[in-house]
Amino acid sequence: MAKNNHNELARFEHCVLPHLDAAFNLARWLVGNDHDAQDLAQESCMRALKYFAGFHGSDARAWLLTIVRNTTFTWLRQHRMQELTMTIEDDYFDAAAASSEIVGLSPSNPETQLSQQADADQLRQAIEQLPVEFREVMVLRELEDLPYKQIAAITGVPVGTVMSRLARARKRLQQILTSGATAPENTAHGL
């Protein structure tokens, strides 16, 4: 009889654990360090096992990512409340726009592409400094290639909000690419 339970675990390991990379990656981008990300990924997996009997969908990755997202946000609320204060969202983007002198957009030629390579570090830093609600949609879209609808389901916001967050985040990063500006320092997002 113990076989039955083993099968359940085997099914979980077959269905959910292949998405451990995705789980860790999301947690890592949201909290910014390996140690906490590992703990959060593990906690999420244990929660997922607990609720696995109730999971009948076909997309285990999106399901696991929802659990990771919620687990991580609960943790952020307990440990870094200041990062979740969305009222500064507009200030962040206004300050960002003001601090970058937006010059004409560069045409795509090999030279620009080279300098873009050199700017990759700067760009990565800028992504790390985006407010966490923007970072999560960027990671889910750019690294997991998820459709808007699933991103909306995972993050618990309407599809329209996903669209506008993506558009604003990309615009901000485009400004950084074309003007070489850095993220503003007068926000609550520590550098």
């Binding site: 654990l17 860790f24 890592r28 873009q116 750019e142 990063l173």
Partner: peptide, 28 residues
């Protein structure tokens, strides 16, 4: 397209370390 390509190169995908995998396996 350019900004997306740049974002793609600038955002590493963090893979789960092996010890995390083992830890979770044991815990499960």
């Amino acid at each position: 397209m350019d900004v997306r390509a740049a974002i793609k190169t600038a955002t590493p995908y963090f893979k789960a370390p092996a010890n995390l995998r083992n830890r979770i396996h044991a815990e499960l």
